[in-house]
Amino acid sequence: MPENSASMTEKIQKIGSEPDVAAAVRKWRKKRGSLIMVLHEIQNSRGYVPREVALYLSRELGTPLASIYEALTFYHYFKLEPPGKAVISVCTGTACYLKGSQAVVDEFSREIGAAVGASTEDKMFHLQCVRCVGCCGLAPVAIVNGKTYGRLTPADVKKIVQEWRDHFKDDPA
């Protein structure tokens, strides 16, 4: 949709009255240097920062869209696309890495068919690497939607993926 079209303008306008966006703008509008905080709030409430929200923030905060995207794309924390329903975070911190987490990451990637940092086409899974989740005793560790799996080997991956496929099977994308 062209960003200068009337329907896009309307969409951007409407997004400003959605509670999370309105609250974030109200809270941070007057404070200089608060772009990252606003983006954090949107990321946390929506799981990603949609383009319409970025366009709205640019207008409301008087921050060039270019600056917003420089921040959004610099920090891995921010996502531009909705993540999959099951977000697989594999720890590649020092302990997990030494215990072979790279092989686990590779196996997840192969099993779901998406690269690290990407989602599957059906938006079921999103795969990402994270650094140290604070339970090195369980290394290597992966967390899927808040559920922790420890002492993983590549052989465990298939079962975990199936578990989440089953979990979401009645909830089509």
């Binding site: 970025a54 060039p64 869209l65 270019a66 600056s67 995207y69 420089e70 794309t73 610099f74 531009l80």
Partner: peptide
């Protein structure tokens, strides 16, 4: 704008 970081960084319009 300069987007992304490190080896992946590119000069491109926003988004």
């Amino acid at each position: 704008s300069t987007e992304r970081r490190g080896l992946d960084s590119i000069v491109a319009p926003a988004g």
